[in-house]
Each structure stands twice: as structure tokens, then as C-alpha cells.
Amino acid sequence: MEIPRPWCKLLFLCSFFLLHACAAQTQIIEDNVETVTRENLRYYLYYPQDYEADGDKSFGLLLFLHGGGEAGGDLEEIKQNGPPKLLVEGKQFPFLVLAPQNPHKKKWWNAEAVKQLLDSVVTTNNVDVSRIYLTGLSRGGSAAWELATQYPNTFAAMAVVCGMTPLPYAHWIDKNMPIWVFHGEDDNVIAVEESDKMVEKLRKMNYKVRYTRYGNVGHNSWERAYTTDSLYTWFANQKRIR
């Protein structure tokens, strides 16, 4: 199967039926009320150059979650930052890159929908489930922390850039998953103390955490974090411990 490089065209407009508090439909099941809503996630999926759909080789996959500025609009907007931007500029990765778009300008990522999309992509491609990586910036960084707490048995490694943290639930994260945190000291949108406190707590619990704290950098710390070549080498060297 011929796969365009470096991006596949928009593959699917995905609709997932999810249990959710705000329902589009309500049904009664054995005297219990079940509410159902639909979430539409559009996404780009990048394949490495040596990927073969019918081959025996399996690949890692990096799930990237963008920030609030790229939400809800044209799908092309997700190429403004992070790994998608690097792909447009010609960078190649040794793993697949899944980059969905949050359809809501002023809502959080729907973590359950993202996980269902990830599961669908993994099962329909040659993905090594022990090498699934997670990263996000700003609002997407907050969602990355959320996914790590809700689905601790999924990811081999995680990198979070200037995201809000679920400090009280830090112990829910898989202790064997390496974490790399990036934040700018002068961030006036999501304070650097969010990452400071989370890293401190994780280290006290003997988690594997690296922390890059940029001096004289504001909220746009992703511009430096995602151009750190060693980040992708670090990802590629990680494998989930079963």
C-alpha cells in the first residue's frame, strides 16, 4: 500500500460513542440510566519511511496532544508546533506519530475519546504496544498528565511541556514509566510551580523523572523542548516493562 510522506492525508473523521455526563441521547438499561454522547476527532497519522503495512516489523507510536491555540479550527493548525511542525519541516521519526485535534476551542481534551482513537490506530497498524509514547504541550500537556493517571498501563514514556498537573493523583502514574518535564520559568499562563511541585512529588516517590526548567522563557517553552533532538532519541530507547 502506498503511503504518502511525510504525512498521510487526513485518514478519518472519527466518531466515538462515549459514556459522558452531557448526553446527546439517553436510554434506560435494566433500571439504570446510561447517557451517550458523540465526540468527533480529526487527526493526522505519520508513518516512518520504512513502514510497510503488510510487513512483519512493528513500530513505536508517539501520541502528540497540541495546545489550546490549535483547537477547534482547521486541522492544518496542529502543524504549527511540536512534532507536527517538525514533520512539515522535513524531520523524520523512527516511529508513527498520531496527532489528533481537540474539536473544542474552550474545552479540555476528552481523554476517553483520545484513548479510544489511540486504541483504534494501534490495532489497525503495525504498532508495538510496548513502545507507545505520550507527549503534549500546554492544554495538551495537562491532558497528557490525565492520560497517564487514567491509563497507567499504556505508555512506555511521557514528555510534558508546560502543562497543569494532577498533583494529588501523582501516585496513580505507572512508577516504571520514564517522564521528562519541560517548563519555562517566566510562564505567565501555566505557572512553572505546577511542574516544580509535580516533579518534586514524583521524585520523592522514586519515579524516573527528568526536568528541564528554562530560564528567561515564557509559556512558549515548547519551541525549545520539541527541538531538543535528544528527546526523540530518549523516546525511541524506551520500552514498556510488563
Rank of each mutant, 00 (worst) to 15 (best):
Q116G: 08
D56P: 10
D74W: 08
N126A: 15
S138D: 03
V97P: 05
E76Q: 12
Q150R: 14
E89G: 03
S58C: 14
G60E: 08
E146F: 03
G55L: 11
L62Y: 04
L62S: 04
L118C: 10
P84N: 06
K79S: 06
V88R: 13
A143I: 02
I132N: 00
T165S: 07
G82H: 08
T135N: 08
G60V: 10
N81S: 12
I78F: 05
A99C: 13
W145P: 02
L65A: 07
P100V: 03
G60S: 09
A148R: 00
Y151V: 05
L117E: 09
G136E: 00
I132R: 00
F93E: 00
V114H: 09
F155E: 03
Q80S: 13
N153L: 11
S58G: 02
L75H: 01
L96N: 03
G67V: 02
G140A: 01
L134I: 07
F64A: 07
L137T: 05
A111G: 10
H66W: 03
G82T: 08
Y133P: 08
K115Y: 15
K91P: 01
K91W: 10
M164G: 11
F95K: 05
P152G: 02
F95R: 03
V127N: 02
E77D: 14
A148C: 00
A148P: 01
K57F: 05
W108F: 12
S130W: 06
K85C: 14
L137I: 11
H104E: 14
A53M: 14
S120I: 15
K85G: 09
V127P: 05
G90E: 01
T149R: 05
G141H: 02
M164F: 06
W109F: 09
T154A: 04
H104C: 13
N110W: 07
N81E: 08
N125Y: 13
T165K: 00
Q150E: 12
A99L: 08
F93S: 04
L134E: 06
L62C: 06
N102W: 02
A71K: 05
N153H: 13
D119A: 15
K107T: 12
K105Q: 09
I78E: 01
K115D: 12
A157N: 06
C162M: 03
D119T: 15
K57Q: 14
I132P: 03
S138H: 00
Q80F: 12
V122L: 11
D119E: 15
L137S: 05
E70T: 06
F95C: 10
P94D: 04
Y151F: 13
K91F: 11
A53K: 15
G73A: 11
V160N: 05
S142M: 08
R139T: 07
H104D: 14
A159F: 05
F93Q: 04
L86V: 00
L98F: 07
S130C: 12
L147F: 06
G90S: 01
L75T: 01
A144H: 02
V127E: 02
L62F: 07
S120D: 15
E77M: 15
S120F: 15
A113S: 13
V161I: 09
N110E: 13
P152H: 01
S138W: 04
F93A: 06
Q116L: 15
G69Q: 03
Q80G: 10
